[in-house]
């Protein structure tokens, strides 16, 4: 009979005893390509059990405005990373085509559109906040914004809320 000695049991560290972490994202852009980074990183943070807050401000309000959240666009204008001749980018239909293409690529990767993504984040426990000044500036009220929104905050309340958080401005 052969006895095989086995290694001691290793249990993965799921960080249950770790100190609570917080992350905050400030979304200030309203284009399709600039909407995704915060949402994807927030999703990763939530999966890691990190308390996560997103603050939507200025053009980022388009991400949570019911009238625009499903219609964000991507434009190649002024974006040299598309590697298109820049003189062609402002031609009629170019933004619509680039948007269509980006949406298709995202869909192929099974990445949800912005409204479904925000619902998914909210289900994961993400806190979504609208900037008070932007709400006033764009004449919005709570009915104009997505149902998943936690509320409207002024900057000072938001800063107080995210004390100790790792914060990213996008």
């Amino acid at each position: 009979m052969t006895l095989t000695e086995t290694a001691p049991l290793v249990v993965p560290d799921f960080g249950d005893d770790a100190e609570d972490r917080k992350m905050a994202f400030v979304c200030s852009k309203g284009t399709l390509d600039m909407a995704y980074p915060a949402l994807i990183m927030a999703s990763g943070a939530l999966e890691q059990g990190v308390e996560t807050h997103i603050f939507f401000t200025f053009w980022g309000m388009d991400m949570i405005n019911k009238a625009t959240t499903g219609h964000l666009k991507f434009t190649p204008v002024g974006n040299t990373a598309t590697h298109m001749p820049q003189a062609l980018t402002p031609l009629p239909g170019m933004t619509a085509m680039a948007t269509h293409r980006m949406r298709k690529q995202l869909e192929e990767l099974d990445i949800p559109d912005i409204p479904a993504f925000l619902t998914h984040l909210s289900d994961m426990g993400c806190h979504l906040w609208a900037c008070k000044m932007s709400v006033d500036m764009f004449n919005l009220d709570e009915d104009d914004m997505i149902d998943e929104l936690d509320g409207v905050l002024n900057v000072s309340d938001f800063v107080e809320l995210i004390e100790g958080a790792q914060t990213m401005f996008i």
Partner: peptide, 16 residues
């Protein structure tokens, strides 16, 4: 590594 879980040998990665 091979470890023992519930009295039987089991293959695991470095994290478990």
């Amino acid at each position: 590594p091979v470890t023992t879980i519930a009295d039987r040998p089991v293959h695991v990665d470095d994290e478990g």
